[in-house]
Lab assay of single mutants.
Amino acid sequence: TRVETATETAWISLVTALHLVLGLSAVLGLLLLRWQFPAHYRRLRHALW
């Protein structure tokens, strides 16, 4: 049971790290898009909202 718990903890930390990385890359990508294509971003936002 001790090994299982350790594996579970490792998986949880791995998944958390993955989610953090994905979230950060998504935010960075959005910022980059907004910085590179302001007109396109505004049009996209206008279409979405």
Rank of each mutant, 00 (worst) to 15 (best):
T1E: 09
T1F: 11
T1A: 15
R2F: 15
R2S: 14
R2C: 08
V3A: 03
V3K: 02
E4Y: 11
E4K: 12
E4P: 00
E4Q: 14
T5F: 02
T5C: 06
A6M: 11
A6Q: 02
A6L: 03
T7Y: 11
T7E: 08
E8N: 02
E8L: 01
T9L: 11
T9M: 12
T9P: 14
A10Y: 01
A10D: 06
A10F: 01
W11Y: 14
W11V: 10
I12K: 07
I12R: 02
I12T: 08
S13F: 15
S13Y: 09
S13L: 11
S13A: 15
S13H: 05
L14K: 10
L14Q: 04
L14D: 08
L14F: 07
V15M: 11
V15C: 03
V15F: 06
V15T: 08
T16D: 06
T16M: 11
T16I: 14
T16E: 04
L18N: 02
L18G: 01
L18T: 10
H19G: 15
H19W: 15
H19S: 15
H19K: 02
H19M: 12
H19R: 03
L20A: 12
V21P: 00
V21C: 14
V21Y: 04
V21K: 02
V21D: 01
L22I: 15
L22W: 00
L22T: 08
L22Q: 06
G23K: 04
G23Y: 09
G23F: 11
G23W: 00
L24D: 05
L24H: 01
L24Y: 03
S25D: 01
S25M: 05
S25Y: 08
S25F: 01
A26P: 02
A26C: 06
A26D: 05
V27F: 12
V27Y: 12
V27K: 03
V27D: 02
V27W: 06
L28Y: 08
G29M: 12
G29P: 00
G29N: 03
L30C: 14
L30E: 05
L30P: 01
L30H: 01
L30I: 10
L30F: 14
L31F: 11
L31T: 11
L31K: 01
L31V: 11
L32R: 00
L33Q: 00
L33E: 02
L33T: 04
R34P: 05
R34A: 05
R34F: 03
R34V: 03
W35R: 15
W35P: 14
W35L: 15
Q36K: 15
Q36R: 15
Q36E: 09
F37K: 03
F37L: 11
F37T: 07
F37E: 02
P38N: 14
P38A: 14
P38V: 10
P38Q: 13
A39G: 13
A39P: 03
A39K: 13
H40Y: 05
H40I: 07
Y41L: 14
Y41P: 04
Y41E: 06
R42V: 09
R42C: 09
R42G: 13
R43K: 10
R43H: 06
R43V: 10
R43E: 10
L44H: 02
L44N: 05
R45L: 09
R45F: 04
R45K: 14
H46T: 12
A47R: 12
A47E: 02
L48R: 06
L48W: 12
L48Y: 00
L48I: 10
